[in-house]
């Protein structure tokens, strides 16, 4: 069953009087529970594609369906809600809130959604932090953690709302190869145990080797699968 469907997706950016096409008609379907890599060289359009799927940007033309919802027809508030409830993000630069500790960073999306009781919330946060192996660092702030630990916090935060899709934009780019591999292992394991759909972009062949499906992008179009 498709969780993401893209039909004829075009994304253009105005650049002065010019218009730059980042995506030139992408058709793609991603099934629930997939562990997909979007690969391609820098400037190929993979981040743009991830942004459209992640509802942080909208297509110039074409349709992007996320969990059955046409993102082009949603308001900013609806898109925000969709991100909160259906999507989890893992950023290349971790993007943690520096003034909050590990527990609070992970808890943040749950507080925004307001769906759980404080007890349930705490249990879920602690269990995820445990899953990513940071129980000892519960009350440490991002500045006190290593890069790998920060990315683990980001993973826990991305999964805490139990999203349908987790999007990871070059999640290992700022990590050494060993740490990167362990992060990928962790994501694979969560994909296997939680059934969460993982879509991540990378141009690292070592990372690609872990993917069950690789979509190669070049010059804004799907080159191969």
């Amino acid at each position: 069953m498709a969780i993401v469907q893209l039909q004829g997706v075009v994304k253009e950016y105005p650049l002065g009087k010019l218009v730059v096409s980042a995506l030139r008609g992408i058709d793609m379907t991603i099934e629930r529970g997939e562990f997909t890599v979007i690969a391609g060289p820098s400037g190929s359009g993979k981040t743009t594609l991830l942004n459209l799927i992640g509802c942080v940007d909208v297509a110039t033309r074409g349709t992007v369906l996320v969990d059955g919802q046409d993102t082009g027809r949603l308001s900013d508030a609806d898109l925000t809600r969709l991100r909160l409830h259906k999507l989890g993000f893992i950023f290349q630069s971790f993007n943690l809130i520096n003034v909050l500790d590990v527990h609070q960073n992970v808890e943040f999306p749950l507080l925004l959604s307001g769906t759980l009781t404080p007890g349930e919330r705490d249990k879920r946060v602690r269990s995820l932090i445990d899953r990513v192996g940071l129980t000892e660092q519960l009350i440490q702030r991002p500045a006190e953690l290593s890069g790998g630990q920060r990315q683990r916090v980001a993973i826990a935060r991305a999964l805490v709302t139990n999203p349908a899709i987790v999007l990871a934009d070059e999640p290992t780019a700022n990590l050494d190869s060993g740490t990167g591999a362990s992060i990928i292992e962790l994501m694979k394991e969560l994909n296997r145990t939680e059934g969460t759909t993982f879509i991540f972009s990378t141009h690292d062949h070592a990372v690609m080797s872990h993917a069950r499906r690789i979509v190669k992008i070049r010059d804004g179009a799907v080159e191969s699968e």
Binding site: G54, V56, D76, A77, T80, R81, R83, L84, H85, F89, F91, S93, N95, L96, I97, N98, F108, P109, L112, S113, R157, T161
Partner: peptide
């Protein structure tokens, strides 16, 4: 800006 972008990306509305 990056922090605010993150809050928005993970589901924080403009009001927050």
């Amino acid at each position: 800006v990056p922090e605010i972008g993150t809050i928005r990306a993970v589901g924080g509305q403009r009001g927050i």
